[in-house]
Design a protein around this nucleic acid. Structure first.
Length: 584
RNA sequence: GCACCCGUAGCUCAGUUGGAUAGAGCGCUGGCCUCCGAAGCCAGAGGUCACAGGUUCGAAUCCUGUCGGGUGCGCCA
């Protein structure tokens, strides 16, 4: 079990018993107390602020209160010593046994180490990627894809019942453009002299095979339909082809979704009309005029009546239109219906992963969820900032027109999916990210992917060597778990073990904060501790992992090394990255 | 004009939802291989956490204002 939770329980019980003894008032709220590793390791293993948090409600001085709690904490299981410091922190020093025991737990649990149940099986929907089906994915899409995918995996590890969803934007004018572009390629495939691709159509070569495939079907039937202005078949065909393309791109990144929902289907099955009808009945929709935005002058501004959702009643800045001037629903209207649909499918918790350009859309969407679900659902939107692509320090300029557009597939082919996935998590999702195609493959300290993988590979290397040098030794996890861990007493070893024991807690905090990048940083810390320990062995032979004439000591150290590798593997598993066993 | 995000070492960025003396990489200076993988490690220098107030035991973190940067702002998705 999570070491920190264990002591949270202990502390909560102490507070309660102090209450029953009359030394503290009853009914104190324990919500705000923290049980965490202190920033400065010299302060001990676990630090708590109970005394300071409860001081005011209890009407006592923090340090006096700390004395009361500390006196009882001394007797808690695994506590070596208790100190009161600063304004009233209680610092616990835990017995080495406790950390040593974690090695056993890690080896027994394997990659499942860190699994928790704070999610309590609650259903949560994560919607990500949702790229328009008008062409292959580019690097920018990849960030949202990876962040969404890893966030989903993280939540699953934390005990949530996660559904990964893709919203297909298969409606609206860009689909018309796509369809016309496909028609163009179809005619071209039939040998018609179609000339240059007209302005406004998608020029990408990825549509050529679509045209060819169409032509290979019953081309005269299709031609006849097109002449009659009926492009439905082509439209469905090309959307299908684009979604296949996108699914292939995603699959190259190791991503697959549980549910695909079509925007078009919401138009066709009247879902949008129904939601709007309900909103209208509640007077949340009206015909009205909007002020033109100040500071920028839309040259084509035309003052007209619009069909508006009263999103300002739910915290938005202005009311939002539900219909376009041609009478069709806006994208927003469809999205309102879509999110209500998710709620009706049982998701009180929804997370959308969007690009930074959609930031201004958050308030209205949350307003809509609030309005349509009667505040029973919560929508959290995670924004992914831009990815700036570099090649050896030189920015890679991307332009669809100039043909210098870099697709996701090209990047994955060049550096591999694992590198792409890891790199996308080396920044907070809201911060812009520089991605250098050359550096990503570099084998050095400043490439975090390499650095973490190197630690894992080194650990595997030690185990290989051990078997070679000490033939009697068995290094499978269950045997290593039986080693006498009391030999692990060096400060650097303890430091590593404490870090490893922090993995379950990291899973919890990162999942609750919905910040998958914390995993990458944590793994980097583990790797640093391990590389440091390794090099201590270079300077002091007695600290090496393999001590030829001391089998029990060696077994304990190998157990620790293996546990380190397991935790890295566990973290990488959440990130969807395969740990490497050697890198020569 | 309004909204959202950001401002932390020379550079690129973390900072455990309010904790103690603010961290890491790069770069700079100086060290460590008769090797369990030096593709690594250790040490040093480097800071008014943009600025000013406020909230409290305690603020890089929360609130207000100012300055500076980014993004978005009816009928695109």
């Amino acid at each position: 079990m999570n070491v920190f939770n264990k002591y949270r329980q202990a502390i909560e019980e102490i507070v309660k018993s102090l209450s029953t003894e009359g030394k503290l008032p009853a009914g104190l709220s324990l919500d705000r107390i923290s049980i965490e590793p202190p920033r400065d390791p010299s302060h001990g293993d676990i630090s708590t602020n109970v005394a300071m948090v409860l001081a005011k409600p209890a009407g006592q001085k923090p340090r006096n209160l700390a004395e009361l709690v500390a006196a009882k904490l001394v007797d808690a299981d695994g506590v070596d010593s208790v100190e009161i410091a600063g304004p009233g922190f209680i610092n616990l020093r835990l017995a080495a046994v406790l950390w040593q025991q974690q090695i056993v737990e890690i080896l027994t649990a394997g990659v499942a180490y860190g699994d928790t149940d704070i999610g309590g099986g609650q259903a949560i929907n994560v919607e990500y990627v949702s790229a328009n089906p008008t062409g292959p994915m580019h690097v920018g899409h990849a960030r949202g894809a990876v962040i969404g995918d890893v966030l989903a995996a993280l939540l699953a590890k934390a005990g949530f019942d996660v559904t990964r969803e893709y919203y297909i934007n298969d409606a609206g004018v860009q689909i018309d453009v796509l369809t016309r572009s496909a028609v163009h390629r179809f005619k071209q495939a039939l040998g018609e002299d179609v000339g240059e691709i007209p302005d406004g159509l998608y020029p990408g070569e990825y549509l050529i095979p679509v045209g060819r495939d169409l032509a290979a079907l019953e081309d005269d039937v299709i031609s006849a339909a097109i002449t009659d202005g009926d492009t439905k078949f082509v439209r469905d065909f090309v959307i299908d082809a684009m979604m296949t393309l996108i699914r292939e791109d995603l699959s190259a990144l190791g991503i697959s979704h549980d549910v695909f929902t079509s925007e078009r289907s919401l138009h066709e099955n009247e879902a949008i009309g129904e939601v709007v009808f309900e909103l209208e009945a509640r007077d949340l929709v009206y015909w009205g005029r909007l002020e033109p935005p100040k500071g920028q002058k839309p040259d084509d501004w035309e003052d007209r009546e619009q069909y508006l959702f009263r999103s300002t009643s739910f915290g938005d800045d202005i009311d939002r239109p539900l219909k376009k001037s041609d009478g069709s629903w806006t994208y927003f209207a469809a999205d309102v219906a879509y999110h209500l649909d998710k709620f009706r499918r049982g998701f009180g918790e929804m997370i959308d992963v969007w690009g930074a350009d959609h930031k201004g859309y958050i308030k209205r969407m949350q307003a809509a969820v609030d309005a349509t679900t009667g505040s029973k659902a919560v929508l959290d939107v995670r924004i992914c900032n831009l990815v700036n692509l570099f090649e050896s320090g030189e920015p890679v300029r991307m332009s669809k027109r100039a043909g210098t557009f870099v697709t996701l597939r090209e990047v994955v082919d060049q550096v591999g999916k694992d590198v792409v996935r890891f790199m996308m998590l080396t920044r907070g999702n809201d911060a812009p990210l520089d991605f250098d195609l050359k550096e990503a493959l570099e084998q050095s300290r400043d490439n975090p992917v390499f650095y973490v993988q190197y630690a894992h590979a080194r650990a595997c290397s030690v185990l290989r060597n051990a078997v070679e040098h000490m033939p009697g030794l068995s290094v499978d996890d269950s045997t290593l778990a039986k080693a006498d861990m009391s030999h692990l007493t060096d400060e650097a070893e303890l430091a590593l073990m404490r870090l490893l024991a922090g993995w379950p807690r990291l899973v919890e905090t990162a999942a609750l904060a919905r910040e998958p990048h914390r995993i990458a940083y944590y793994l980097n810390d583990i790797a640093a501790a391990f590389h440091g320990l390794w090099n201590k062995g270079n300077e002091d032979v007695s600290l090496r992992f393999i001590i030829a004439d001391h089998e029990v000591l060696t077994a304990a150290r190998l157990a620790m090394v293996r546990a380190m590798a397991v935790v890295i593997a566990s973290g990488l598993a959440v990130m969807g990255v395969k740990p490497v066993e050697e890198m020569r």
